[in-house]
Computed example of a mutant assay.
Amino acid sequence: MIREARPDDIPQILAFVRELAEYERALDDARATAEQLHTALFGPHPAAFAHIAEDDGTGEPVGFALWFLNFSTWKGVHGLYLEDLYVRPEARGGGHGKALLATLAQICVDRGYGRLEWSVLDWNEPSIGFYKSLGAVPMDEWTVFRLTGAPLAALGTAGN
């Protein structure tokens, strides 16, 4: 079962985020707090949205998807960017990841969004194979760039 996240899910979402960061070999980079997630998901101006996958038998949360809107100037419509998709190892293969993605795809269809996109680490072959099996295609001609930390601060203050 897939459902929208609720405020009382924040501790579970934070645990999933940390488990995902550990899987991606970047646990030290997972610094979000419960307060930050609560504000982002449920504050006066939500910047992100989340869905929870629950085990059909027990009702226990086994995974989540956290996403936000982007916008295509070429298509003139929003898209959905999937920031995190995670299913606990013991629940993988049970259809939860596909159900989460299907839920997000349905949101795109229902709202007229032009695309659903996400990033995946190059070494994560199991996920890449799974995404390709759904019809997703890698954007090989695009390279993701990111500014963080001191370079972000330097550029942000360069024009002041």
Rank of each mutant, 00 (worst) to 15 (best):
R25T: 12
L27T: 03
D28K: 02
D29L: 15
A30D: 02
R31H: 13
A32K: 04
A34E: 15
A34V: 06
E35I: 10
E35T: 13
L37W: 06
H45V: 14
P46T: 05
A47P: 00
A48D: 11
E54M: 07
D56P: 02
D56Y: 05
D56K: 00
G57W: 10
E60P: 00
P61C: 09
G63C: 06
F64L: 05
A65N: 10
L69M: 11
N70Y: 02
W74H: 00
K75V: 02
K75F: 00
V77Q: 10
G79L: 01
G79F: 01
Y81H: 14
E83C: 10
E83D: 15
L85M: 14
Y86F: 15
R88L: 10
E90W: 02
A91Q: 00
A91P: 09
R92W: 04
L101C: 07
A102Y: 08
T103A: 10
I107R: 15
C108V: 03
D110V: 09
D110L: 07
G112V: 00
Y113N: 01
R115C: 04
L116W: 09
E117W: 11
E117Q: 15
S119D: 12
F130L: 09
F130H: 04
K132D: 07
G135V: 08
P138K: 03
D140C: 11
W142F: 15
